[in-house]
């Protein structure tokens, strides 16, 4: 007897869910499909892959792709070198400073990049003086940009292992602090470091604001310029960079899920059990 309003409510909920998924799904999928269609289309002649071939052939685009990939690698390296020892050190020796470090790491989230760039102009006059006028000097600014995201995933990684016990055990066996960090801690937070690296790469490859306003050329700056003369190649390049970021971030969601499962399974895993250590650290 009470079943009939229940059934009606359930039917209404199902209708609501289907409507939401279909309408919003279309909103998200249509621009992506349009990009794909736009990038292979020739007026009155059908389809072509010429614009996609341009990605490898256009010299400016090619050097911009290389620059952006180099920037991504350098940013990941600087981020890891700066963040991992500091965060381990804070947990072990100066826990009183952890709030300050957290605050500083999350600060870039509240400062818009367009604001940061105004203040960075003066700093970059000095950077150019010391390091030359290469686009790769953007590494410094990008490391600041990726800091909040990298901090969060590394912090989650460190929280999931018993840093203090592991390092005390290693220290009592005569390991130096360097050995503790590189051979004990890093292998145990491998997936956290990997996800920090992925999100950093995705952010660097998509960055436009700072590069364009400091007059450096990276991938997005060149795509934007190209858009004025050759819209279809620019759309093909956009779609390619987007797909690359998609793949990275989908991989990231798998890494994240696996690590969260491991946390519940092991309290303090021995270093020898971690067979999935990323080697790039």
């Amino acid at each position: 007897m009470t079943a009939s309003p229940r059934v009606r409510a359930r039917r209404r909920l199902a209708a609501f869910r289907i409507t939401v998924f279909v309408v919003l799904g279309a909103f998200f999928v249509v621009p992506l499909l349009s990009m794909a269609s736009f990038s292979v289309r020739v007026p009155a002649r059908g389809r072509t892959l010429d614009y996609w071939k341009q990605l490898g052939e256009n010299p400016e685009l090619r050097s911009a792709i290389v620059t952006s990939l180099e920037l991504a690698a350098l940013t990941v390296a600087l981020m890891l070198v700066l963040l991992v020892p500091t965060m381990v050190w804070v947990r072990l020796r100066v826990p009183g400073l952890s709030r300050i470090v957290e605050f500083l790491c999350l600060l870039p989230l509240t400062i818009p990049a367009i604001v940061l760039v105004v203040g960075l102009e003066g700093v970059y006059a000095w950077v150019t003086y010391f390091f030359g006028d290469s686009s790769l000097t953007l590494t410094f600014a990008y490391t600041v940009l990726v800091l909040p995201y990298a901090y969060r995933s590394i912090d989650a990684g460190l929280a999931s292992i018993d840093v203090v016990t592991l390092s005390e055990a290693a220290r009592s066996l005569g390991a130096s602090w360097f050995t503790v960090i590189v051979r004990i801690i890093v292998p145990n937070i491998g997936s956290a470091l990997l996800s920090a690296a992925f999100i950093s790469v995705a952010l660097v490859l998509g960055e436009f604001t700072i590069a364009s306003l400091l007059n450096y050329e990276n991938l997005q700056v060149v795509i934007n310029l190209l858009g004025k003369s050759d819209a279809q190649t620019a759309v093909a390049a956009s779609l390619a960079s987007l797909l690359f970021a998609f793949v990275l971030l989908v991989l990231l969601s798998f890494v994240g899920r696996r690590s969260s499962r491991r946390v519940t399974a092991t309290v303090a895993p021995a270093p020898a059990t971690s067979t999935t250590t990323p080697r790039e650290a």
Partner: peptide, 27 residues
């Protein structure tokens, strides 16, 4: 997972996506 990706999706790429959709010669 899709939301995690799309929330990061901004910048020049997004602008071109909409130009390809609703621009003068958009699909």
């Amino acid at each position: 997972a899709a939301c995690g990706v799309l929330a990061q999706f901004g910048g020049v790429t997004l602008a071109f996506a909409f130009i390809a959709t609703l621009g003068f010669s958009g699909v």
